[in-house]
Simulated assay, not measured.
Amino acid sequence: MNTLTQFHLVHGAVLEEVDGIGIPMRYGSRFEQEIQTMLQGAGIFDASTMMEIQVKGPDSLQFLQGLVTNDLNALEVGECQPNLMCNSRGKIEHRLEIIRLEEKAFLICCARGEGLAVGRKLDQFHIREDLQLSVLNSDTIRIDMIGALAKQILENQGWSTDTFKWKMSGIEILTVEAPINDFPRFIHLVPLLEAVTFIETMSEEPETGLVGQDSLKDLQTHLGHPQFGMDYGVENFPQEAALGDHISFNKGCYVGQEPHARMYHRGHPNWILVQLQLPEDMVVNSGVKLYVEDQKVGTLTSLSSIQEQDFRNGIGMIRHQIAGTGQDLTIENNKNV
């Protein structure tokens, strides 16, 4: 058992193993407290199960441009960009976050459990390009800070908005701003051996606390941020998953580019993810069917527990012709959504 796992267990974490690494799902019975920590302060989330693949070398930009949907030319050093890998039919294979470490070096952050498949695809397409592929997780891990006061807390520790590489108590850290929609989130790349010290130091700040995967997912649904494997999957096009901002239509060819361009210029998807509001007292689970009058028009894909102004937010996949009309939807028992 490594030091980081021991740290989480001491703090009451319920762990779930992914690729041999235990990820904190929640800390005891503090689910609601974790939510409030992010809404009012800053939650510290161990994202070490996200495989980090570095692509470095003279041809790194050209190589990745042919594989991912967004335009990496628009990415400055020290910035993070949402991205997708798609198949030749244009359907989503992997959602990625790509950080530009140097002019000719990029870090691909893979969703948990997706790293090996992403690595195999990179190997498959890497033929003659002058670059090196390497996994950094044995030396460096990712720790996120999410919450309304995250920026202020980081500034208290010596970070500034114009700084990508900095030191805290002698620890060398890379910090990238990567909001969830418009909600503050900061990605930290921290030496593995210093991870516990980093978390402990940040936890000493007022209004901070450890948060697990369950509360973070709940917050993302509340914010209307669709999640791979829950709101959409490999059967969907990016436009169906409301991920149009993950695609550049000006960058040139990449795997899946032609179907995306046809849909963008000539039409629209038949289905699309939208944010929904449900009465806070409605008892319903994700997966329930959505209706307009007696016609089935979609499915509720996720529902947040966070109550705001007598409502809870959810995400649903509905027919495109219904989206944006403002029509009330109902579930099977005719309760309004």
Rank of each mutant, 00 (worst) to 15 (best):
Gln327Ile: 07
Gln295Asp: 11
Met50Leu: 08
Ser169Arg: 10
Phe7Trp: 14
Gln327Lys: 13
Leu131Trp: 09
Glu200Phe: 01
Met1Leu: 03
Asn83Gln: 15
Gly324His: 10
Gly12Lys: 03
His11Gln: 13
Ile53Met: 04
Ile108Ala: 07
Lys165Ala: 11
Leu210Cys: 08
Leu278Lys: 05
His94Pro: 03
Glu293Ile: 03
Gly212Asp: 14
Gly298Tyr: 04
Leu149Gly: 03
Lys289His: 09
Thr69Glu: 08
Ile53Ala: 08
Glu129Arg: 04
Leu107Ala: 02
Asn181Glu: 15
Leu133Lys: 12
Val196Asp: 01
Thr5Phe: 00
Ile199Asn: 02
Cys80Gly: 15
His265Asn: 14
Met1Gly: 11
Val196Lys: 12
Glu155Cys: 06
Thr140Val: 11
Val196Cys: 15
Pro58Gln: 14
Thr5Asn: 09
Val288Gly: 01
Gly66Met: 06
Gln65His: 13
Ser88His: 10
Thr3His: 10
Ile247Val: 15
Ser48Phe: 08
Thr201Trp: 07
Trp166Gly: 02
Met51Gln: 15
Ala117Gln: 10
Asn156Gln: 14
Ala74Pro: 00
Tyr254Arg: 08
Ser215Ala: 15
His260Phe: 05
Glu79Phe: 01
Gln54Lys: 14
Cys80Ala: 15
Glu34Val: 05
Arg120Phe: 08
Phe228Cys: 13
Ile127Asp: 11
Ser302Phe: 00
Val77Thr: 07
His265Ser: 11
Asp19Glu: 14
Ser48Asn: 07
Thr330Lys: 13
Pro58Val: 08
Ile306Thr: 02
Gly287Cys: 10
Ala195Ser: 14
Leu149Trp: 01
Ala242Cys: 09
Lys104Asn: 15
Val211Gly: 11
Leu39Gln: 15
Arg112Glu: 15
Val283Phe: 09
Thr325Arg: 15
Lys167Gly: 10
Thr163Val: 10
Leu300Gln: 09
Arg142Pro: 01
Met263Thr: 00
Glu102Tyr: 06
Ala323Trp: 02
Pro259Asn: 12
Arg95Tyr: 07
Lys217Met: 13
Met51Leu: 13
Asn285Glu: 14
Leu136Asn: 07
Ile23Arg: 12
Pro238Leu: 11
Arg312Cys: 10
Leu219Asp: 12
Cys110Asp: 08
Met282Ile: 09
Arg89Cys: 04
Phe183Ile: 01
Leu131Glu: 08
Leu116Glu: 15
Asp144Gly: 06
Val274Arg: 13
Leu243Val: 04
Leu101Asp: 13
Gln65Ser: 10
Ile98Tyr: 06
Pro279Met: 04
Pro184Gly: 09
Lys104Ile: 03
Leu107Met: 10
Ile180Ala: 07
Gln321Asp: 13
Gln239Trp: 00
Gly324Ala: 14
Lys56Asp: 12
Pro279Trp: 02
His126Pro: 01
Lys167Ala: 12
Arg26His: 10
Ala178Cys: 08
Lys165Tyr: 06
Ile146Leu: 06
Pro58Ser: 12
Lys151Gln: 09
Phe31Gln: 09
Pro184Val: 04
His8Met: 11
Thr3Arg: 08
Phe186Met: 09
Leu290Tyr: 02
Gln132Trp: 08
Glu76Gly: 13
Lys151Gly: 09
Pro184Phe: 08
Val274Glu: 13
Ile53Cys: 09
